[in-house]
């Protein structure tokens, strides 16, 4: 069908070059030179789409804060393996430790399989050719069971991972059933789209400050009637951007949430993990090395900023020093060690 979304391929490639020596002389914002991408915004994604999902496994260890003065609110995070890719997930309800948390908190890794998965890199927003004021969405997804997809605009997250639209008059949430199957493509039918002209670009380009309202929310869930299977829900939250307020909308997925057995898991991508390397490094080692000792492999990510930049030894040492992320200088709340081994399992 004559759908045009040709301009939407400007997918942002993650490049962990931020600690990389700049090869050129600085013609830089005065007065100081920083290695250019020293303060990158955290990436807007979550897990890396692996072409061979069964090839890697990960185990996760968390270090939960030492000197108590840094951590009035220690919290625990559940580690999740989804499609056995290295990533982490925070459970929604944070626990508050009554006493200072132990320095190293080894947490067991929990495997989570989600029954429905929207491939976030495939999400597109495009003009309905029969109805040029309106926009439709498309994406690829896999589903182990039959279920349905619901599209919301400017929807607020409520208790128990339910969503309500702030402006139901503008767009009533719309649900489409699907059948089980891998590698499916969802294309929203013509005539069911939204007229985004009613909304301010500013409101579409970012979530609410508390990250409870997102411009675009897609909820994919499996049917609860399947025998023995608990309903699984995957929520994809995105913002809609226009470069310089013109041109087509670009969809940027900010977060995905899994809602399984009444537990909420938030998925975000780790920034700086090995497989995201780009070949244009002049020294490939640098992408994998711990930025502190420049010797060991990076295996520890900083939370909440998600910079995977250190080895676990240096990470531990850093906690007693500055306790700030070496890459972005945000305070470290938690460190997560991620071991990736390529084998069967």
């Amino acid at each position: 069908m004559g759908v045009s979304w040709s301009n939407n391929n400007r997918r942002r490639r993650r490049r962990n070059t931020y600690f990389h020596p700049h090869p050129h002389p600085p013609h830089l914002p005065p007065p100081y030179y920083y290695p250019p991408p020293l303060l990158p915004p955290p990436p807007q994604g979550y897990f890396i789409t692996s072409t061979n999902p069964s090839a890697s496994t990960s185990t996760t260890t968390s270090y939960v804060g030492p000197p108590p003065q840094y951590y009035p609110n220690g919290y625990t995070a559940n580690s999740v393996m989804l499609h056995q890719q290295p990533l982490y997930a925070n459970e929604g309800g944070s626990e508050i430790h009554a006493s200072p948390p132990p320095y190293i908190d080894h947490q067991t890794t929990k495997k989570i399989r989600n029954d429905v998965n929207l491939h976030k890199h495939t999400l597109r927003l495009y003009v309905d050719t029969n109805n040029p004021d309106h926009h439709l969405i498309s994406f690829d997804f896999d589903a182990l069971y039959d279920g349905s997809i619901t599209i919301f605009y400017l929807a607020k997250e409520e208790e128990k991972c339910r969503f309500i639209p702030l402006f139901p008059d503008m767009f009533e949430p719309i649900t489409f059933p699907f059948q089980k199957g891998a590698g499916q493509k969802f294309c929203q039918p013509s005539g069911t789209g939204i007229d985004l002209g009613f909304f301010e670009l500013d409101d579409l380009s970012r979530p609410s400050p508390g990250e409870d309202v997102f411009p675009l929310v897609i909820c994919a869930e499996t049917n609860s009637s399947v025998l023995g299977a608990s309903p699984h829900m995957q929520i994809t939250q995105a913002v809609l951007e226009k470069s310089n307020s013109i041109g087509p909308f670009q969809v940027k997925v900010v977060r995905q949430i899994l809602w399984i057995d009444d537990v909420r898991y938030e998925l975000r991508e780790l920034y700086g993990i090995g497989s995201s390397e780009t070949p244009d490094f002049d020294d490939n080692d640098l992408g994998k090395e711990c930025v502190i000792c420049m010797t060991e492999l990076k295996d520890t990510a900083v939370l909440p900023c998600r910079h995977m930049c250190m080895c676990s030894e240096c990470a531990k040492a850093l906690r007693f020093q500055s306790n700030k992320c070496p890459i972005c200088r945000q305070p470290i709340e938690e460190l997560i060690e991620i071991k990736i081994n390529n084998g069967n399992q």
Binding site: F19, P21, H22, Y33, Y34, P35, L38, V291, I292, C309, C314, L318, Q321, S322, K324, P326, I327, R329
Partner: peptide
């Protein structure tokens, strides 16, 4: 503003 990710070069 020192960060251990900075180097002599930077």
């Amino acid at each position: 503003k020192w960060s251990p990710a900075l180097q002599i070069r930077t």
